[in-house]
Each structure stands twice: as structure tokens, then as C-alpha cells.
């Protein structure tokens, strides 16, 4: 068998978390590529956020998979950013929807991002996922020194 550093996060139910992150990353990427490529001028802010969220989900997915302290920190950073994003954009889409769609001329097009209305278009998964991610990261905190030794939680 190939010698490789054991991941502390990609184990047990954490794999489901990573898979859901990967699906969300794919969904957000597909949508934002379409929005930015075909109708960016209609709502630049909404679509920039859409693209940004896609990138953050991709980075979070990778950070959850890759072992080590650095990626542990990166996972925290991206997941915290996601939670902030979904809460802020969720609030904004209720309080001031016109911020995202500057011209009523384009009111008919799809301006939603994964974060709009707290991720309602994605079954609120974008709101719940970062919280589950944080709980998982807390449980799988790497030990001091070698990140791999003894930090892996038992199969649950």
C-alpha cells in the first residue's frame, strides 16, 4: 500500500459532509458560470457573490479532504466565511432585494445565489452545512505537533 498521511477529517460521517460540500460546490459553480457568462451586466453584485460562493465551496471541500493543520485552518476560514455569507446575503435579500438587482428591467431573470433567502433554493443546506462543518471541525481538531497521530475520531 502507498504510504500516505491519514486524513483526520475525511473519515466516517465526515465523508458525507465532504460529499455534500462537493455537490454544493458543483451546483454553485454551474449556476454562477451561467449567470456570469450570459447576464453579468444585469446584476453584477448578485453574480459576483454567486461566483465567490462557488469558489469558497470548492476551497472548503478541498480543505476538508486534505490532512494537516494548515488545511484545518483553511477549512475553518472558508466555513466561517460561508456562514457569514449565507446570513448576510439572506438578510439582505429580505431587507433590501434591490441591492442585488439594480434595474427593474431585469427583474424577471434568475438572480438567486446559493445564499439568497438563506439558501431557500437549496433546501437551506447552505445555512445548515457550515454549522455542521464547524461541529465536525471541532471534533476532529488536529493534535499539537503531528496532525495525523491519534486525532482521527473513531468510526461512529
Amino acid at each position: 500500500m502507498m504510504v500516505q498521511k491519514q486524513s483526520t477529517r475525511a473519515v466516517g460521517i465526515g465523508r458525507v459532509l465532504i460529499a455534500v460540500y462537493a455537490i454544493l460546490a458543483l451546483a454553485a459553480t454551474g449556476r454562477s458560470v451561467f449567470q456570469i457568462a450570459t447576464q453579468f451586466e444585469q446584476a453584477p453584485l448578485a453574480y459576483s457573490l454567486s461566483g465567490l460562493s462557488a469558489v469558497v465551496y470548492i476551497v472548503a471541500t478541498i480543505a476538508l479532504i486534505v490532512p494537516g493543520r494548515k488545511s484545518y485552518g483553511l477549512a475553518w476560514a472558508t466555513i466561517t466565511f460561508e456562514l457569514a455569507g449565507v446570513v448576510l446575503v439572506g438578510l439582505m435579500s429580505i431587507i433590501a432585494p434591490e441591492v442585488f438587482v439594480p434595474s427593474a428591467k431585469y427583474a424577471h431573470s434568475d438572480h438567486s445565489t446559493v445564499w439568497t433567502y438563506f439558501g431557500i433554493g437549496y433546501g437551506f443546506v447552505p445555512l445548515v452545512l457550515p454549522i455542521l462543518g464547524m461541529l465536525w471541525l471541532r471534533r476532529t481538531r488536529p493534535s499539537r505537533g503531528d496532525a495525523a497521530v491519534g486525532a482521527a475520531p473513531r468510526e461512529v
Partner: peptide
């Protein structure tokens, strides 16, 4: 994924992916 990772969690991953397909 399910063929590489032979644990029960892969069934949950299959379910999550198929659910996403249904929504899509």
C-alpha cells in the same frame, strides 16, 4: 466514491447525490 470507500457512509453519499439529482 462508493466503490472506493466501502463504508456505510457511501450509501448516504449515494443518497445525497441522487437527492440533488431529483431536485435538479
Amino acid at each position: 466514491w462508493a466503490l472506493v470507500d466501502r463504508t456505510r457512509w457511501s450509501n448516504v453519499v449515494l443518497g445525497a447525490a441522487v437527492f440533488a439529482v431529483a431536485v435538479m
